[in-house]
Design a protein around this nucleic acid. Sequence first.
DNA 1: GTTGACCTTCCTATTGTGGGAAGGTGCAGG
DNA 2: CCTGCACCTTCCCACAATAGGAAGGTCAAC
Lengths: 145, 145
Amino acid sequence: MNISLAAERSGVSTKMIRYYESIGLVAAADRRANNYRDYGDQEVAMLIFVRRTRDLGFSLEEVRALLALWRDRRRSSREVRKLAEAHLANLDARMAEMRAVTRALKKLVHACHGDDRPDCPIIDDLSMPAKQAGKAKAVQARARK
Amino acid sequence: MNISLAAERSGVSTKMIRYYESIGLVAAADRRANNYRDYGDQEVAMLIFVRRTRDLGFSLEEVRALLALWRDRRRSSREVRKLAEAHLANLDARMAEMRAVTRALKKLVHACHGDDRPDCPIIDDLSMPAKQAGKAKAVQARARK
DNA sequence: GTTGACCTTCCTATTGTGGGAAGGTGCAGG
DNA sequence: CCTGCACCTTCCCACAATAGGAAGGTCAAC
C-alpha cells in the first residue's frame, strides 16, 4: 500500500511517517521498483500505536521506548507500567503548575473591574517582581506617595 | 546598567533580552560609546513585566499586546481583562484535555498488573485505533478466537 | 600587559509539525 | 503519443522559545 493510504489508515500524516522513518523511530519501509515506500497491515498497526501514544502526550523518545516494548514479546508488563506511570507523574506536575498559574490569573481577573477606567490590578501586578506579586494594592499605594 | 545586571534584576537572561529586542518585543536599548547596551530602571521594569506575563503562560504575541496596554496610560481595564480571560479560557481548555488524557492513561495503568508477565492492557489498548480504545479486553479476546 | 569578565554578532540545536519546490512515476482520456 | 493529474521522491524552510557556543572587541584590576 502507498504511503498516503497508510497515512489515511493510521491517522499519521505522510510528512510524519517519513519523519519518523528518518529519525529511526520506525523501521525504513520496503521500497517497490519505483522507489515508492510500500506498507503492510503490520506497519499500519505500528503507526497507529505511535499515533495513539502521541495522542496520550508521550514524547517521541517515550514512544521509542514503548515501541521497543511493543515489539518485544518477552517484555514484562511491569516495564510498560513504569513508563506509563512516569508519564503520568509528568502530566500531573504540569497540570499542577497550570492550576497554580490559573489560580493566580483568575484572582487578578477577579480584582480587575474591567470597565473604561485605565486602572488595572492585572497590569499593576505584572509590573512587579514575583516576590511582591499579589500585593498590588498596597505596593502601588506606596508608590504613589 | 549592563545587560547582565539588567538580566539579573529582571530575571530575564541576556540571551532572551537580546532576542526580545531582535523581534521588536521590547524597544532597542540605548548604546554606550562601546556599543554596549545600556539599561535604566524603566527598561528593567518592562523586562520584569515581560517575565511575569511569560511566567503566567502568555505567548510572546500575547505579551506584545499586554505590553502595548502597559505602555498606554489611556487603555481601558476592560481590554486588559479581555486578554487575560482569553488566556484563561486557553489554559482551561488545555487542562481539560490533559485531564482527559490523564484519566484514560490512569485507567490503563490501573488495569495493568505490572508484574513479570508480558500481558499488558496498556500495550494492547495503544495498538488499537482510537475508536475501539478502552475496549482492549473484549477486542483482544475476540482477536484470540 | 596579561588575565578574566564582560560585551558584541552570528550560527546551531532543540521538539514536532507543516508547507512547498523540483523532479520522477503511473494511469486515464483525448 | 501527448497531456494532465495524482501520486511519489528528496531537500530546504518555517514556527515557538530558549540555550549553547564561537569569534572577536572592551574594560578593569593586578
